[in-house]
Nucleic acid binder design. Sequence first.
DNA 1: CCTACCGATCGGTAGG
DNA 2: CCTACCGATCGGTAGG
Lengths: 196, 196
Amino acid sequence: MARTQAPDYDLRREAIVAAAAALYARRSFQGASVADLAKRCKVSKSLIYHYYAAKEDILFDVMISHVRALEEAARAVIAGEAPPDAKLRSLARAFMAIYVGAADRHKVLLNELSRLPKNRRAEIVSVQRGLIEVVRRLLLAVAPRLSAPRSFTAAMLFFGMINWTHTWFDAEGAVSAEELADLAVNTTLSGLRGAA
Amino acid sequence: MARTQAPDYDLRREAIVAAAAALYARRSFQGASVADLAKRCKVSKSLIYHYYAAKEDILFDVMISHVRALEEAARAVIAGEAPPDAKLRSLARAFMAIYVGAADRHKVLLNELSRLPKNRRAEIVSVQRGLIEVVRRLLLAVAPRLSAPRSFTAAMLFFGMINWTHTWFDAEGAVSAEELADLAVNTTLSGLRGAA
DNA sequence: CCTACCGATCGGTAGG
DNA sequence: CCTACCGATCGGTAGG
C-alpha cells in the first residue's frame, strides 16, 4: 500500500518556505524564531516540525530553491544558439529578473549562507560555483586570451555588480532591472576589451 | 573633581570592538552572545556592560569605526590634486586596503546593518551615502553627460565590484588587492566610455 | 570587576 | 494502526 500524503503537502511546504524567506530576509535567520514563522503561516509550531525536522532545513530549502532557479535559467541560456556576449546578456537579464522576483530568497542566500550546517552549505556552494563557471566560460569565449585567474576575477566583478543590487536597487526606480543587467554586461564587456 | 577613568580605557574598549568584529563576522551578531564575547576577551560579561550599555552599541562601534576609516581615506584622496580618474583609482586602492585590513569589520558592516536600531543605522547609512556621493561626483567629472540616475547606478556598480570581494577575494591569491582595485576602476571607466 | 541571578524566550518534542 | 495535526511544555540559554 502506498503511504498517503495530504493532497496539498507541496503547497503547504512551499507556503512555509515563502514565509520563512520573507521573515529571514527582514529579521535574519537567527532573529526569527520557529514560533514567529508558525504565527506568520497561521499554523502551529508543530505543523512546521511536521514538514521540517530542524530549523536549518527550512533555511536550506529557501536557498536551494533559489539557486536551482538560477541554475535552470543558466542551463536554458547556455543551451541556446547565440554568440557568447548575447548569452551573457540573456543570463544577466534572467538573473536580475529572478533576483527581483525572489528578492527575499536572494537576500537570505547572500546573508545567511554561513548559518547553514557544513554539508548543506557545500551543496549550495557547489551550485553557485557552477553558475560562476558558466559566466567565466562565457567571458573566456569573448576574450580567449584571458588567464584563468583573470577570467575568474572578471566573473566575480560581474557577479559583484548584479548581486550587490540587493542592497540598493529599486525595481520601481528610474533604471529597470533589464537596463541594469545590460549596464553590468556592457561594463564587463568593455572592461575586457579595454584590458585586451 | 574630574571623574577618574582607567588609563587603558580606550585600549580595552578597542580590544572589545576588535574581538566583537571577529565574532560577529564568523557567527553573526545574533549568533554570538555577550558571554561569548566576554570569554574571547577573557573578561566577565559585566565588564563588557561596563563599557557598553547594550549589545547593539558594540555592533555600532564595530561599524562606525570602519565607515569613519573609509570616510577619512576618501577625504584625503579628494583633497589631493589629481585628475578625477586618478582620484578614483586612489580611492579604490585605499578602500580595498581598508577592506582587507579590516575584513571582519567590513563583513559585519555589509551583513549586519539591519540589526542596528533605526537611529544608529541612520548614522552609518549617512556616512555611506557620503562615500557613494564622492564616487558619483568623480564619475560625473569623468563623464559629465551622465544623467543623475545613471551616475548613481554607475557608482553602485563600482561599489558592487569592490564590496562583493568580501565573499570571495583572497589577499594571498593570484590577484592582489591593488590589482583588483585597478580592475574595478578600469572596468568602470571603460564602461563609461563605452556608454558615451 | 565578579558571582549570582532575573524574566523571557529559544529550538524542539511530549501525549492524545 | 496510520498520517496529520494540536495545545502545552521540555531542558537550556539568551541579554541584561
